[in-house]
Design a protein around this nucleic acid. Sequence first.
DNA 1: CCGTATCCCTTAAGATACTG
DNA 2: CAGTATCTTAAGGGATACGG
Lengths: 127, 127
Amino acid sequence: MTDHEGRGHEWVADCRLRAATDLFTHTWDPVVLAALRAGPRRRRELRAAIGGISDKVLTDTLRRLLAGGLVGRHAHAEAPPRVEYGLTVLGQSLVEGPMVALGRWAVDHGDELLAAQENAARRTTDP
Amino acid sequence: MTDHEGRGHEWVADCRLRAATDLFTHTWDPVVLAALRAGPRRRRELRAAIGGISDKVLTDTLRRLLAGGLVGRHAHAEAPPRVEYGLTVLGQSLVEGPMVALGRWAVDHGDELLAAQENAARRTTDP
DNA sequence: CCGTATCCCTTAAGATACTG
DNA sequence: CAGTATCTTAAGGGATACGG
């Protein structure tokens, strides 16, 4: 199943592609990954930088990303607890590769996307 | 999904990127898009090519992709109903760009990803 | 063949309050 | 500051049966 290029009828059976797309199924995962792009951050910094994410969801998301091997955690042994999260090498490759590509696409086709959505919406409302 | 005061934070405030990543939050969307990469397909062909998707979910997914302007629908006026779904120009640009990039990444880093996941899993089980 | 209509279960994610 | 503990709601996704 190494053959993902070209034919298309085998994409679905390609577990690796499925595994990759599944990395994006959780709303906040890409957001957190993107926020870590600039470098390691403390939990609180992350929360502030992201904005609009609850403590629980941030915890859940970080747990998942840690389990997925995309994010690493470093707890400094200090009196006021200091913990930093950062992208692993793997996480970095994902962010700098496909995610940047997606971001670029979003910028290039954002207007078009919105327009298409409105157009399709009007189509279903208008007889 | 509350909007956070449109200040120019970073990536997170970039609604276009959010809009783009949200295109992947539904499990089957990328799968269907990928299945359409090879060209327009009839509903039944799609279902067969994908495998493991229910009628309802396929319907939901197609509706969403249609509403999103990524997929188009063409109903031929024939005695036995014939309907074909295909990528729009916009959908094609998404598939051929970011999605192919993601697929390539999945192939290149699939082993690494699995290894990292197992590693992280062992870490949380082993003290 | 192309869908729709239900019912059911699981889980993401928000809100809130509390501990080390 | 870093995290946990509940509770709640909304929604994705599966199974099945029926309608155009």
